[in-house]
Structure formats: C-alpha cells, structure tokens
Nucleic acid binder design. Structure first.
Length: 625
DNA sequence: ATAGGGTTAG
C-alpha cells in the first residue's frame, strides 16, 4: 500500500511558519498588498502566537501601519495581549520607536488596563525629560480611573519622577504605594530606594531597606550604590563584608563592580585584592566590566603595574578598557606612556571617545606636556570630531595654569562655547595661588560669587594668595568677611588602609583610638626631621602670627596624622598609601619627602586624582602641586 | 506557561 503524503492539520506549526513567512515577505518587499489573514481554522490562541511572532519580527518602521491595518481588519487589535505587544513595539526604545503614535493608539483604546498603562508609563520614563512628565500624568490618570497601581506601574512612575527630578512627585508615589499595599514587592522597593539615594536621602533609602520583608541581591546592591553615591563609601565595604559572610545572599558580579568602585575611591588596595580573589572564585573574572573596574581600582590605588597586568591579560579590550588604562597611566604621572597607549589603541582600531580624550589630556596636564596637550586638543576636535566638553577644557585650564600661563588659561575659559562651572574657576584659582597672582585670583572669586558657588575653600585659596605675598591687610579683611558671613572651612580628611581596614583622619583629629601614640609619634618625627634639617614651610599657612605658632598649626594636618599612624603601624621598607580629598599643601609635601628618607618608607599620597610618589627623599613630580 | 521590570565598568 502506497503511503499518502502526510496532511498537516491547520494548527500544525508548519502552517503557522508559512503564514509568518508570507507575511514577512510581503512586508520585506514593501508591497502595497495587505498582510494576509491567518489561515482559517487556526485556533485563536495559535493565531495570537503567530501575530506576536510577526510583530516581534518586524524591523522596519514603514511596515508598522500595514500591521496596524491588518490588526484592525482582523479585530485582533481589541485583543489585550496583541495590543500590548504592538504598543510595546512602537513605544519602547527600539529602531521602531514612535512614541506619539503609540500614545495616540493607546488613547483610542477602549479599556486600557493596568498592564497597558504600565507599558506606556515605562515607555515615557525611558524617553526623556519632557516625556517623563507625560508619563507621570498617565500614572495620575490611571489612579483617577480607579485602576489601582501595581508594583510595576508604580516603579515606572518612580522612574519618571527621577527623570523629572521631582522629589515631591516621588513622595506622592511612595504614599500611594503605602495605600495600595505593594509594600512586599522587592522590585518596587528597590526602585524606591534608588529614588531616595539619587536624591541624596541616604537615611530614607536605608529605612526602606530595613523595612523590606524580603531582600534580594539587587536590593543589597542598591544599598551599596547608595552608600557610594552619598559619600558613605566605607559603609559600602561593610555591606560587602556582611553579604560575603551571610549564607543566603552572596555578592554577585554587580556587587563586585560597585565595591571595586568604592575601593578605588578609598584607596583600599587590600580590600580590592580581596574582591579580586572573590571574583575569581565565583568565575566573574571573564567579565569585561569586572576587568575594566579592576584596572581602574589598581590605578586609583597607585598600582599601575598591577593595572597593566590585568590590561595585558585581557583578550578583548574595548574603549572603556583603554580609557581606564590611559587614565591610570595619566594620573600616576606617566604622561608619555599615556600618549603612547593612545596611539596603540588607534593602531589596533578601537575608536576613542570623549572620556578617552579626557584621560589623554589629563596625562598631558599632569606631566607638564603643554605642547603635546595643545596639539592633542586640536586633533581631538578636527580629526576625531569630538566636541570638547567641560572636562576637556578643565584639563586645558589645569595644564596652562600649572605652566604659569595664567592669562592664556583665563582667555580659554572666556572663549568656551560651554558655560564654565565652579570646578573650572577653582582650577584656575589654584593656579593663581601657586603663582601668587592676586589680581586674577580676585577676578576668579568674583566669577564664583556670580555662580553662587563660592565655598569656604575658595576663600582659603584667596587667603593663601594674600598671605604668600604678605598682604596682611587683605588677609584680615577676608577673614573678617568669612567670620561675619559664618563661612567655615570644612576640614580636609586623609585615609590610610592597614590590614584591610580604612582609617580616616581630619586635621587636629583626636578621635582615633590610638591618638596618644599617633601624636607622640608625630612629635618624634618632627624632632627627627629637625635633626635632618627640615624646616616647616610657614608661608603656606595663613595666619599672620608669630613663626612658632604657625609651626604648631601646621603640625596636625590630616595627612601628617595619617603618615604618623602609618609609620607607627608598618615596618621600614614598606609602602604607606594615603588618599586625601583636597590638595596637599607644600609643607606636608616636604614633610612626606623627608619622612621617606629618614624612616625608609615609600609614601604614596593621592590628592583628589593625582599621585605623589615619595622615595628616598624625592618626589616623582618635580613641583609640589 | 501569562505581557512591562530594580542594581552595573573608564
């Protein structure tokens, strides 16, 4: 008996495939013919599936109206699932996105449900600031229609509030969440934590975290990122500690990324190495993001060699990898090597971006390569087509300012097409101090006042200028002004890591448990340094007081306390690594130089983002700043 | 099996 060819029932997959193929071909050929109807006899569930596949396979904007017509003709547009898919396709970010179109058909839809609202709110939260405003309106409209919010729609609404930068709207959403009873949704609460964190409300974010009944890894990660963002970096490390020790929630790759950033900020090399070990144990070490942040961590802890090891071991290197490496070389004082690395990057065909350029320019400024920097600045604009931003200009101002070309720096700021910010003026003010240029310094402070951005530190720099040229009248004038306005200086702080623990000092600090020993050690060091011929650099201090008094005030700068503690706790021949949030002063620079010789320690001080490597009485950079 | 989803490198 002859075998009959098999007959496919109409719901058989091959029918569906054929339908989708015909439809897709019709679309691809951009024919005026309408999309064919699904074959008769296909169950509606199967037809639904086909249509979803069709919508998903569509890649051309011009095909959307055809699908739309088809959906109307076959009445499938009334099917909520189909409608949602179609709406998502045209509203959410993709090459097909057409948000106004999406909004229009959404508004024409008879009975939008919570999912449809959620999708629209999400689409608006992703589309930009003015769209976010509309998204929040949709959320309110939804509540007005007595559709009570669910976890997802509320979290999208919070995203809108973040984009809108509307703190008050976010609070409204939070109170609504409490009313509608979504307090158990950990995703929603994580979004809420991030909202508080982004608004600088660390305590509120922690409160949400504490009250969560179920905390998953993402929630813990947001807590870490919250601590980092809100200057509680050391607490971020503690969170990692807790996570690592707990049996349930182990840190994932994102936790590691965040904590490595914290280590970089804190100069916490030992902790960073611990994270590296953990990363390896978990098998995250193949991740490009992880390797990139390890490069940054090592660089920011002053260990370019180790950063380079990681860099070398990587099979694939992207822009971020190269920029991190170039930036690391730059901040550690290897300007020429940074430029060489940049050329190598171009040679192997990785396209540089704006942050790569920032790294190269900062290398030029840190290593005093003024001509190279100027040349590169032009190349960047003309050949790479990168429009200079505030950071690029900042490097140029810093570079010319360090070289003493103060007027050129001032001219540059005035000629920028972007509005200078306070940091830019502050860079120039620092240069004015270094070159004792009082007239320009005054001008710069006026610009800062105009921006309403003047800080205590700015007046201190101005004071430094006046005292360096012995204009004591002006010094007391500024001091009086500061006293009357109640402008108080925030003390600088220095951190030092010992056995994986971070110790923090501020000037005249008495809070450390070993303060007696530290101050004794400082006295001893001062004695030793006197014998070695060290004389305190007194012009750096501002008071017009007798020389003896000046010397005592200078003695307890935070970095000196940290150095004293470092010598106390380490053996000769070791490396002491200190990070400081403000610029190191000339006196402390000399102090570190002499200490490195007398006490046989390598001292590495990072002030803001630049390194000073002290060894055998010398510093890697010729001038102190 | 049930749409839309939180944290993330220079």
């Amino acid at each position: 008996m002859r075998k009959l060819p098999p007959r496919f029932p109409s719901h058989h997959p091959s029918f569906r495939t054929r339908f989708i193929n015909t439809a897709a071909t019709a679309l691809h050929q951009n024919l005026r013919t309408a999309v064919p109807s699904p074959p008769l006899g296909i169950s509606s569930k199967a037809a639904e599936k086909d249509l979803i596949a069709l919508i998903k396979s569509c890649t051309k904007k011009s095909h959307l109206p055809q699908i739309h017509t088809h959906l109307i003709r076959t009445s499938f547009l009334l099917n909520p699932t189909i409608f949602l898919h179609f709406l998502s396709r045209i509203s959410l970010p993709s090459p097909l996105q057409n948000l106004p179109y999406g909004l229009k058909i959404f508004q024409n839809y008879a009975k939008p449900n919570i999912s449809l609202y959620g999708t629209m709110i999400r689409a608006h939260s992703l589309a930009g600031n003015s769209a976010a405003l509309l998204g929040f309106e949709l959320y309110k409209e939804m509540l007005h229609l007595d559709i009570s919010s669910d976890g997802l729609s509320s979290s999208f609404a919070i995203k809108c509030c973040v984009k809108m930068e509307s703190w008050f709207s976010g609070l409204q959403v939070h109170s609504r969440i409490l009313r509608d009873g979504c307090q158990c949704d950990s995703l929603l609460l994580t979004t809420l934590m991030d909202f508080y964190s982004l608004n600088g409300k660390c305590d509120e974010a922690c409160k949400v975290f504490d009250e969560m009944s179920h905390r998953d890894t993402a929630a813990w990660n947001v807590l870490i990122s919250c601590y980092i963002r809100n200057k509680r970096t050391r607490d971020a490390l503690s969170v990692f500690d807790i996570m690592e020790k707990s049996k349930g929630r182990r840190p994932d790759d994102v936790s590691c990324l965040l904590v490595l950033e914290a280590c970089a900020k804190l100069n916490a090399l030992e902790f960073g190495e611990r994270v590296r070990k953990y990363v390896k144990e978990c098998g995250f070490d193949g991740s490009m993001k992880i390797s990139n942040s390890l490069i940054a961590m090592y660089s920011r802890c002053g260990c370019v060699e180790k950063a380079y090891e990681i860099f070398e071991s990587m099979g694939n290197k992207d822009v971020v990898t190269w920029s991190a490496m170039i930036g690391g070389l730059a901040s550690n004082g290897h300007g020429e090597q940074a430029i060489r690395a940049f050329r190598e990057m171009q040679r192997v065909g990785v396209a540089p971006d704006d942050q790569t350029c920032t790294a190269v320019l900062s290398g030029c400024s840190h290593s005093g390569l003024v001509n190279e920097g100027r040349m590169f600045f032009n190349v960047m604009r003309k050949e790479l087509g990168i429009v200079p931003n505030l950071y690029h200009y900042g490097c140029m101002v810093d570079m010319t300012g360090r070289a003493g070309l103060l007027d050129e720096a001032y001219e540059l700021i005035c000629s920028m097409e972007v509005k200078p910010d306070a940091a830019m003026w502050r860079t120039l003010l620092g240069a004015c101090r270094n070159y004792k240029h009082a007239a320009l310094g005054e001008k710069v402070v006026e610009h800062l006042i105009e921006l309403k951005a003047q800080e205590a530190g700015d007046y201190v720099l101005l004071l430094n200028i006046y005292s360096s040229i012995s204009d004591w009248e002006k010094v007391s004038e500024v001091r009086k002004f500061m006293r009357e306005k109640g402008i108080r200086t925030t003390p600088a702080s220095s951190t030092i890591e010992l056995k994986g623990k971070i110790h923090e000092f501020v000037a005249d600090d008495v809070s450390h448990p070993r303060k007696k020993e530290i101050y004794d050690m400082l006295d001893e060091i001062n004695m030793q340094l006197k014998i070695a011929g060290y004389v305190a650099e007194i012009t750096a201090e501002l008071h017009n007081t007798c020389a003896e008094e000046k010397r005592t005030t200078l003695s307890y700068h935070s970095e000196k306390l940290a150095i004293a503690f470092g010598i106390l706790a380490t053996a000769p021949g070791t490396k002491i690594r200190i990070a400081k949030d403000l610029r190191i002063c000339l006196d402390c620079h000399n102090f570190a130089k002499t200490v490195s010789a007398v006490y046989n320690r390598q001292v590495v001080i990072r002030d803001r983002n630049r390194f000073h490597h002290f060894r055998d009485g010398r510093c890697s950079c010729n001038d102190y700043w």
